[in-house]
Every structure is written in structure tokens, then in C-alpha cells.
């Protein structure tokens, strides 16, 4: 199948993804922490952005990959795509959690509050809940084919729901907290743009690399258990059959 060929081809460049991610992130960290000037309004705190924004973008990207993979799975029923979806959900959950955590740390010095029911924060939290529900659901099903199918259905429903959640929270928020809190004064100057770009590219590469490693992990796990299972049933067979 095409997807297998693509995966094998991409897998061959796995090392490049990893190395590229390491280089970009190291460069981004150096420029972000040392090489770039502090922001006029936010001061040094603006440096949190270089780690928070790439994390947030990547987690959104992870969700999009998850739902495309889920649709692909329902269409082609290819187990490796399901392994990929399972992998991306776990990685996406971690990226989302870290994006929320760094966002909270950024919020404290800039808005003087750890948490605000801002549309973006709220929809990210709900996305995290959907991802955790997705991962929980997968642990509660024995039949791997059924597990993959149900998980895909949940992911697609979540994809449809996320924009609606975002809009509804946005409307709700403008009703209750009219514009008292907003991202003020972060003008995207080149001093901010370069480390941000470095970190964004680095995080995307890191995400792809992690995705490949984890897909491989789940695939090998499945392979090993299938082999073990087959060996076990053959072992039983030889014992019971005279």
C-alpha cells in the first residue's frame, strides 16, 4: 500500500528529523535566551513565548494529524495508521499539557493571574480532555480492531467540535470579561521573530521525530505480542494434540 511505502521512505530520514530538531532547538534556545533583546513592555518574560507558542502550535498540529489519520484509518483500515494515531494522541496530549503549563507561567507575570477563562486557553483545555478521553478509551477495549475504530470516531467528532467550542467560548468570554485581558504590546519584531521561527521549526521537527519513534514503538510492540501470542497458541496446540 502507498502509505507503507511513504512511511518507510520517511522513516529512512528519521535521523535527519531528530538531528534537525536538535539543531533548531539549540539554536532557538541560544538566540531566545541570550541573543535576542528583551521586549519593551514585557521585558525578559517575553522569552517564555519562544517555548510556549511553538508548543501550542505543535499541539494543534498534532490534533490535525490525529484526525486526518483517523479518517484515513476508517477509510483504509490500515493498522499502521492506527498505530500512528495512537502515537500522535499521546504526544499531542503531552504537548498540550506543556503548552498549557507554560501559558500559565507566562500569564502570571504578564496578566498577574495563573489562569483566565480565555477562549484559547479554554479550548486547549477541552482539547486536552478529549485527548485524555481518547487515550482512556483505547485502554478499555480488548479487540484492537474495535479499539482503532472507536478511537477514530472519537477523534473525528472532536475535530468537528473544536472550532465550535472555540467560537462558543469566545462569545461567552466577550459577554463576561469584556477585553480586560488581552495580549498587549507584543509586536512581532525581527528580534522576536527569529528565535520564534527557530523554535517553531525545531518543535515541529521534534514532534515529527517523536511521532516516528512512538509509531515504531507501538508497531514493534504489536508485532512482538502477535508473535508471542502465535507462539503460545502453537505451544498449547503441540501439548494438547496427540
Amino acid at each position: 500500500m502507498i502509505i507503507h511505502r511513504v512511511i518507510r521512505k520517511v522513516q529512512r530520514f528519521q535521523g535527519w528529523f531528530g538531528g534537525g530538531a536538535a539543531l533548531c532547538i539549540i539554536a532557538g534556545l541560544y538566540i531566545g535566551l541570550i541573543g535576542s533583546p528583551p521586549d519593551y513592555y514585557q521585558g525578559e518574560v517575553v522569552r517564555i513565548m519562544y517555548v510556549h507558542v511553538p508548543l501550542a502550535h505543535t499541539s494543534l498540529f498534532a490534533y490535525i494529524v490525529l484526525s486526518i489519520g483517523s479518517m484515513w484509518y476508517l477509510w483504509k483500515r490500515d493498522p499502521i495508521v492506527d498505530n500512528m494515531c495512537h502515537a500522535v494522541a499521546a504526544i499531542g496530549a503531552i504537548f498540550t499539557t506543556l503548552a498549557l503549563a507554560t501559558g500559565m507561567i507566562w500569564g502570571k507575570p504578564t496578566w498577574n493571574t495563573w489562569w483566565t477563562w480565555d477562549a484559547r486557553l479554554t479550548s486547549y483545555t477541552i482539547m486536552l480532555m478529549i485527548l485524555i478521553g481518547y487515550l482512556m478509551l483505547r485502554t478499555f477495549i480488548d479487540d484492537s480492531e474495535k479499539e482503532a475504530r472507536y478511537a477514530a470516531v472519537l477523534a473525528i467528532l472532536g475535530l468537528v467540535d473544536l472550532p465550535i467550542i472555540h467560537f462558543s467560548v469566545e462569545w461567552w468570554r466577550t459577554l463576561h470579561q469584556p477585553q480586560s485581558i488581552s495580549m498587549r504590546g507584543v509586536s512581532i519584531s525581527s528580534g522576536i521573530l527569529i528565535p520564534l521561527m527557530c523554535m517553531s521549526i525545531g518543535m515541529s521537527l521534534l514532534f515529527s521525530y517523536m511521532l516516528m519513534v512512538r509509531t515504531q514503538l507501538l508497531y514493534l510492540d504489536r508485532l512482538l505480542h502477535a508473535k508471542k501470542g502465535r507462539l503460545m497458541s502453537q505451544f498449547h496446540m503441540s501439548k494438547t494434540d496427540p
Partner: peptide, 18 residues
């Protein structure tokens, strides 16, 4: 699936936030 009583609200409530 297993644990069905728990999973229904866990999956449903985030979806019906809007």
C-alpha cells in the same frame, strides 16, 4: 467497552460544552 458507566460522561461532557 469496559468501564462504560465512567466513560460516557468523560467522553460526552467535553463534546457538549458548546
Amino acid at each position: 467497552i469496559r468501564a462504560r458507566e465512567v466513560m460516557l460522561p468523560i467522553l460526552l461532557l467535553p463534546m457538549v460544552v458548546p
